[in-house]
Computed example of a mutant assay.
Amino acid sequence: MSSFEDAIRNITPEIYENLKLAVELGKWGDGRRLTTEQKELCLQAMIAWEVQNLPEEQRTGYMNAQECASKSKTVPNILFSSNPDTLH
């Protein structure tokens, strides 16, 4: 394999699931811990594979386009309020 792209093309769904589990647990299937570099590379490989093989809503990090329920609530500005009881 001459490049990262070649490696990604050779990832099977089973390999992808193993990489995903290793990243989630922080260790390989045999119990050895992933190094920081291994975690980074596994995550990069997972994301690259997902772009080629999964719909957007099934990919790592996908956020639904809907706004969260708390966004509709007004948040009071207590830092710059005119309340005389504040400390500023």
Rank of each mutant, 00 (worst) to 15 (best):
A7D: 09
A7T: 12
N10S: 13
N10H: 15
N10D: 14
T12G: 05
E14L: 12
Y16T: 01
N18V: 01
N18A: 14
L19I: 09
L19W: 09
K20C: 02
K20Y: 11
V23S: 02
E24Q: 14
L25H: 05
L25P: 01
G26H: 01
K27N: 08
W28V: 00
D30M: 07
D30K: 12
D30V: 03
D30F: 09
G31A: 07
G31D: 05
G31H: 02
L34R: 00
L34F: 02
L34D: 01
T36Y: 06
T36D: 10
Q38G: 00
Q38A: 06
Q38T: 02
Q38F: 00
K39W: 07
E40Y: 09
L41P: 03
C42G: 15
L43T: 14
Q44H: 08
Q44D: 11
A45Y: 08
M46A: 11
A48P: 05
A48S: 04
A48D: 03
W49A: 07
E50H: 07
Q52H: 13
N53P: 10
L54Y: 08
L54K: 14
L54E: 08
L54W: 03
E56L: 10
Q58W: 07
R59W: 06
T60W: 07
G61T: 04
M63V: 15
M63I: 13
N64H: 10
N64V: 06
Q66D: 15
E67T: 13
C68W: 11
A69L: 15
A69V: 15
S70M: 14
S70A: 14
S72Y: 15
K73I: 12
T74H: 08
T74P: 07
V75A: 10
V75S: 06
I78P: 01
I78C: 10
L79M: 12
F80Q: 14
D85Y: 12
D85S: 14
D85V: 13
T86C: 04
T86G: 03
T86N: 13
L87R: 12
